[in-house]
Design a protein around this nucleic acid. Sequence first.
DNA 1: AAGAAAACTTAACTTTAGGTTAACCTTAGG
DNA 2: CCTAAGGTTAACCTAAAGTTAAGTTTTCTT
Lengths: 225, 225
Amino acid sequence: MAKKPKILCVDDEQDILDLLTFNLEKEGYDVCTALNGKKGLEVAKRELPDLIILDVMMPEMDGMETCREIREIPSLKDVVITFLTARNEDYSQIAGFDAGADDFITKPIRQRLLVSKIKALLRRSGPAEVKKEMSIGGIEIDRDKYLVTKDGVQIQLPKKEFELLVLLSSAPGRVFTRENILNSIWGNDVIVGDRTIDVHIRKLREKLGDENFKTIKGVGYKFEA
Amino acid sequence: MAKKPKILCVDDEQDILDLLTFNLEKEGYDVCTALNGKKGLEVAKRELPDLIILDVMMPEMDGMETCREIREIPSLKDVVITFLTARNEDYSQIAGFDAGADDFITKPIRQRLLVSKIKALLRRSGPAEVKKEMSIGGIEIDRDKYLVTKDGVQIQLPKKEFELLVLLSSAPGRVFTRENILNSIWGNDVIVGDRTIDVHIRKLREKLGDENFKTIKGVGYKFEA
DNA sequence: AAGAAAACTTAACTTTAGGTTAACCTTAGG
DNA sequence: CCTAAGGTTAACCTAAAGTTAAGTTTTCTT
């Protein structure tokens, strides 16, 4: 199965968070929450969600401000952000789009519409991930078939190794921290030892060649041609 | 400059088309039009627009149907589609999202909101924008990738060196005192000897060129082009 | 449903890159 | 031309990553 899309909900009312969480988890999304803009920013940085739902009206740091700050963070620059507003506040919508929002959901929340919108936004957001096959430096990856080819030879990788390869190869040259990797492959709730990642990396190096998997000590790993 | 985004507007009322064309061209978009769903499909195939605005209510082939057909065409599968609806028709919105729409614009059309939405949609859909990396005097720094490039050559810096470079380059020309540096990189509680900084500076000079790292005796260091 | 096989995780140990330091050298600025 | 701040070097230390094999869990097979 494909990785569950992760959604971060930020709202100062626990009721709303519960409602969102309930509806979104029911649809199979991985949901995390935060009770204010500042915490939302923190969680976003750590979890790297695929989509963020931000309440416009929040004490301290409001949705607009939070949105602007999120857009400042390189790793979150392209995340999809949806605002939660009271209905028909066109003025806020205009300002919101300028702040970098991608869409609006109006209160009261309608469950079906919410889910439809989320689906549409996520479908749109992941063009990079939609690419099913890629080929880098003699290594071909076919995400559909769970199949990897190295110099023309097919290699059947186990799930975790494959996921790790897909993750690293999704942005060749980019360094993924151990935290990134754990969050993406194991999820934020699962806890596995640090050595686990090393072992999987080792297996990949064994099967696909040392030279493609670089260690950046104290930071993480990266994949290169 | 990047190529002008191309927008296709499909509506059976010439007035609406004129209004959209006027507003969108004013914003610098390349606009084409079609008076019904069938023609819209033809034009879409030929022009391969970046975004399509479809009126839901059209005789013969309505917006939903057109949308579905567009999604069938491989070269248009990922195009952004926005529907044009009478306000508050939630039922049509739900069906519309299922048909593959990405957003909705309600009539009557508000010029500013229209343009904001279009911008937001295109921003998201566009080919992944070039990551913001800073580039000073032949040195490029990409914080995401933990990667530095000097005159086109990639250099992988260890963590501390990278952090030091990021710090100094964050404000080129500004002098950072030793205390500044220690606080930022090591934290105020950690104590390391004075020579430690020198050594890291030395490594940076070695790898990126002496001339960029100036010593201000008795004060600190600064980074310059 | 039992047994086997494969995949995954862990623990204990080794290795190593990167970070720090100490000792000595150089230089700017008074 | 003296002195304190900074530069250089190489040795040392340590936290992080590599390795291996031994458990666990999952999944396939019969």
